[in-house]
Design a protein around this nucleic acid. Structure first.
Lengths: 198, 198
DNA sequence: CTGTTTCTGAACAGAGTGTATGAAAATGCT
DNA sequence: AGCATTTTCATACACTCTGTTCAGAAACAG
């Protein structure tokens, strides 16, 4: 009695319907009725699984976040020594595979709370990465580490948003990673075309 | 007959009430009735000025964006030659003066559309800054310029969000600017404590 | 003071929410 | 295949919020 087939089917259908509808009309513009209808389910059935559309969206997001965390884990520990770009590459690949869910989350649909969840999760992974790297290499940051983490998370999210919103990917994930790695190495001054500072 | 005193008073009261309530309970949790009551106005009065709470929030945001644009303009043209940090500093100062409005916008309240407006405006200013600088110095970017712009906007927003969400500012605006300038000069690799790359 | 504009409170229809119910259908297990 | 259990369904209900209308009261500009 692990799991009834019907509940699994229903939950999946409702989740997919929500994602599709949010993508089409935006979160605030859709109703529970809309979601249920798209999923070929009764409204009462919706409420027997979720408390409301916010609740459903929250679960969709936390599933996404969990999948990402699991997928990034090896890349994070692996790149604990230097700047490899592995975690970022894994993030981009996951976003490519789950493009629709990424788009609605990154757009800040649903009052921005799902995006907040996503951001926090990424921030946690980033902090761990920094911590591990500093520890294993015996280095101490030259600028405030909290600020540094914010900056890096902000960069990743901005690039990610830009990347998933293009119908045809503007450039392959590997190239994005390479560029951000160069940026990390040489700074934005250099990347803008100026020569290295004194 | 330039402007009736009553309309000015009412609009201001409704705007302030909205900002305060969104800060307290979040945009979705408040009703038009709530806003009107807080502003000591009738619900019918609200609707004679705005189409709904989304409309009011949009206007609050576009006012903020307009003020910022006007305030940043001189800093942008002034720093068209090198990396001065002036535009960022002006942004931080504006955020300090208008903290509440910045907080609700940056949190992505109201379906993220206000945040979108803000982001777009900042992106436009940033692009112009880049364009001017590249033109006057005769340099060409070493990595994709659109990606570069996204990264820089993402950084600024992330730092801004972090900065305005602290009750006591974690560090003065001048210091934030200085750190981000160093980051632009030397890169994240250096900032993390590593020596300069080969 | 006077004509004009705005504010007010009340009323109304409509949409969406969240809950409850009993019958019908699908499922898991033996 | 048969049966007990669980899920789904349609319908109904009270409730909140929305958006509009309107006539009288209040505030305004000149």
């Amino acid at each position: 009695m692990a799991e009834d087939r019907r509940t699994k089917r229903t939950r999946r259908a409702l989740s997919d319907a929500l994602v599709a509808l949010v993508l089409e009309r935006g979160f605030t513009a859709i109703t529970v009725e809309d979601v249920a209808e798209r999923a070929d389910a009764a409204r009462a059935t919706f409420y027997s699984h979720f408390q409301g559309k916010e609740d459903l969206f929250t679960r969709v997001t936390s599933d996404l976040v969990a999948e990402l965390a699991e997928r990034m884990q090896p890349a994070v520990t692996e790149s604990a020594i230097g700047f490899t770009g592995k975690p970022l590459l894994e993030l981009l690949r996951h976003a490519r595979d789950e493009r629709d869910r990424y788009r609605i989350v990154l757009r800040g649909e649903g009052d921005g709370r799902p995006l907040q969840m996503f951001t926090d999760s990424l921030a946690r992974a980033t902090s761990e990465q920094f911590r591990l790297r500093a520890e294993r290499n015996g280095v101490t940051p030259r600028i405030d580490s909290e600020l540094l983490a914010r900056v890096w998370v902000g960069e990743q999210l901005a690039v990610l948003r830009w990347w998933v919103e293009h119908d045809a990917p503007p450039m392959p994930a590997e190239e994005v990673t390479r560029m951000l790695l160069e940026l990390a190495m040489h700074g934005r001054y250099w990347a803008s075309g100026f020569d290295a500072p004194s």
